[in-house]
Design a binder for these strands. Structure first.
Lengths: 231, 231
DNA sequence: GACTTTGGTGACGAATTGTTACTAATTCGC
DNA sequence: GCGAATTAGTAACAATTCGTCACCAAAGTC
């Protein structure tokens, strides 16, 4: 094997059935929800992730945007790659390779078509096995990236209260956070700026509205963390 | 558009030229090095990443392993997905979509064939544009994941000194770390265990050898960090 | 045996983080 | 009107983590 010439296959020789599977995520009624589309006649499961094959020359995020727009009626504002999957699990279109992409939709966007419905992330109907894996990986990627990528801000309207922001972080991380710590860390991060609007939700003191406005900040070079995820 | 029926394309209708581009990484002479393979006759650049089209039914990491084994003569021990790329940049095999995979090779593995050579990551020859992007993304993914994934341990022999481990972390992060802090954090992480062997490198006191042996540890639930990367 | 080099650790002050407790501004019930 | 309830926002203290310095240990070199 070592001395076999490097006659790598010409790409024209093999072509692959490729799918972009889109995990459209949004906070709906206090849970993180996924948009599923109703499957057609012969399908084994009644629901699946929206997906399609990318068109020639189309970028992957563009394909994801197109797919999401079709089922949602609106174009999501942010996309994050989940990873590629080529295992033996069944895909609704028998794609050899799936590329999973998370599409984030702010909580105030009220899209949805007749053939698509929101389901809580932790209470999904039966899905084609490959899609089940894609969703699971999406959830885990999203959880791991909350503090490296502005995911939480993309799940909120353009202005929001700090309590709302905190509750989205809690949704994504799956645990409660302390108010004072959360705000102190946010303050230090220079990621939001206050607007001069306030919103009263009914009960309680009105909250100031903030917007996502990341600013340059001096390099925070912390030491190594050894935060290996072992589950 | 909203009311267009969800006639998603049948996968058989469109097939894609897919490439798995492999970034084989290993510490070589105090830098992080990439294994490049010599390009054939008509290619514009003399070097490229090793790559191939996955075979039917073959997993992506399996394809990466096969490609890496071909150019290295040995099979890498660890793979990490970099992401999928479908931009307009030129690929040596004109693939529509590239899936980048990092393959990690310990520093004591002396593979390499006549048609492949190690290059320092920060001093690479001209590469096909798509491959240039894949390498850049690999570097950035690796840097971002050092403390979530046992990358550093896969770049070392099965037993190693803590100084070696630290120097790999420094290579990956691109900056110096403090010895005492590094060891304290490592201690707290329960990721390594000492062997009863010691190694003298010539000068200086011999160092104890450790092996990677992650153990369960009580949940360290830190608060949110807001470590957004903005560059 | 003194000097150099690399390994390894204790300890202290600084910085960060978890927590408690308080003040502020609003609605609700009476 | 007015106290209770509810949500927002913050100061301040305690606990923990982190960066750094200082030192000791064990080898080779001269």
């Amino acid at each position: 094997m070592r001395d076999r010439p490097l006659a790598l296959t010409k790409p024209a020789a093999r072509r692959t059935a490729l799918a972009v599977d889109v995990v459209v995520l949004s906070p709906r009624s206090d849970t993180l929800a996924v948009l599923l589309s109703r499957a057609g006649g012969a399908a084994r499961e009644r629901w699946s992730l929206p997906w399609d094959t990318p068109r020639p020359g189309e970028g992957l995020e563009d394909a994801a945007a197109r797919v999401a727009t079709t089922v949602l009626g609106v174009t999501p504002v942010f996309f994050e790659q989940i990873g590629a999957l080529a295992d033996a699990r069944r895909h609704p279109g028998d794609a050899d390779v799936s590329i999973g992409i998370a599409a984030l939709v702010p909580s105030d966007v009220h899209g949805g078509t007749r053939d698509a419905e929101w389901f809580p992330l932790d209470d999904l109907p039966a899905l084609p096995p490959r899609h089940r894996t894609v969703v699971d990986r999406a959830a885990s990627v999203v959880r791991q990236r909350v503090d490296q990528s502005p995911l939480a801000f993309r799940l909120l309207p353009s202005t929001f209260t700090l309590s709302h922001l905190q509750s989205v972080y809690e949704l994504l991380l799956g645990r409660r956070l302390h108010k004072a710590s959360f705000r102190r860390a946010l303050q230090a991060s220079y990621l939001v700026e206050p607007t001069d609007e306030w919103r009263g939700e009914g009960r309680g003191r009105p909250a100031q509205l903030f917007r996502y406005a990341p600013r340059k900040r001096r390099g925070v070079r912390r030491g190594v963390r050894f935060d290996l995820f072992m589950d």
